[in-house]
C-alpha cells in the first residue's frame, strides 16, 4: 500500500501531510506536527492519554488511522487554549489541583472538552462517565471531576 496525502484543519489551521496507511493519527500529530501534548499511554485504546477531538468528538489518537483525519476538523490539547491563556478546562485543572505527574492531563482535558460540548452543564455522574475512558494513576480522579464541574459553571 502506498502513502496517502491528507489535508485537514488542525487547531484552526489547514494543514497537509503524507502518511502511511497503517500510521496512527497520534504518531502523525506527534512526529509530523510536533504536537506532543497527546501521549502514547498504551497504544491499545485503553488509557485515553492520546485523546484528540475529531469534528468536536473525542477520539483515540492511537487507534484512529492518520488517513482518517483527511477533511476533518482536528483539535488537540494544544488547541484548547484561549489565545495565549489556558482554556477554561485547562485553567480549572490547574486550579483544582487535578494535575500531578500530568501524563494523563492532556487526554483528560480533551475528554472534558468533548463532554462539555455535549453537556454544557453536566451532572457529576455525567462527568464521571465522560471520563471513564481516561486512566489516571496519581490523582484518584476526584480533583479532575471537580475541575470539569468548575469549568462547566458559567463565567460570573
Amino acid at each position: 500500500m502506498s502513502d496517502v496525502t491528507i489535508a485537514f484543519r488542525l487547531n484552526g489551521r489547514m494543514v497537509s501531510a503524507t502518511v502511511a496507511p497503517t500510521q496512527a493519527a497520534l504518531e502523525c500529530l506527534r512526529d509530523q506536527f510536533a504536537l506532543t501534548g497527546a501521549k502514547l499511554g498504551c497504544g491499545e485504546g485503553e488509557c485515553g492519554a492520546c485523546a484528540i477531538l475529531l469534528d468536536g468528538q473525542a477520539a483515540l489518537g492511537c487507534l484512529t488511522p492518520a488517513a482518517d483525519l483527511d477533511g476533518r476538523e482536528v483539535r488537540t490539547v494544544e488547541g484548547l487554549r484561549d489565545g495565549p491563556a489556558l482554556g477554561r478546562i485547562q485553567a480549572a485543572l490547574v486550579h483544582e489541583g487535578a494535575v500531578q505527574c500530568g501524563f494523563c492531563t492532556p487526554g483528560m482535558a480533551v475528554a472534558a472538552a468533548a463532554l462539555l460540548a455535549e453537556h454544557p452543564a453536566p451532572t457529576v455522574e455525567q462527568i464521571r462517565r465522560g471520563l471513564e475512558g481516561n486512566l489516571c494513576r496519581c490523582t484518584g480522579y476526584v480533583a479532575i471531576v471537580q475541575a470539569v464541574q468548575t469549568a462547566a459553571e458559567p463565567t460570573p
Binding site: 504536537l35 488537540t76 485547562q90 485543572l93 494535575v99 492531563t105 492532556p106
Partner: peptide, 14 residues
C-alpha cells in the same frame, strides 16, 4: 496550584 501544572495542562511539558 502546582508550578508545573499550567504547562502540563497546556500539553507543553516535554
Amino acid at each position: 496550584p502546582k508550578l508545573d501544572a499550567p504547562d502540563k495542562a497546556a500539553g507543553r511539558t516535554r
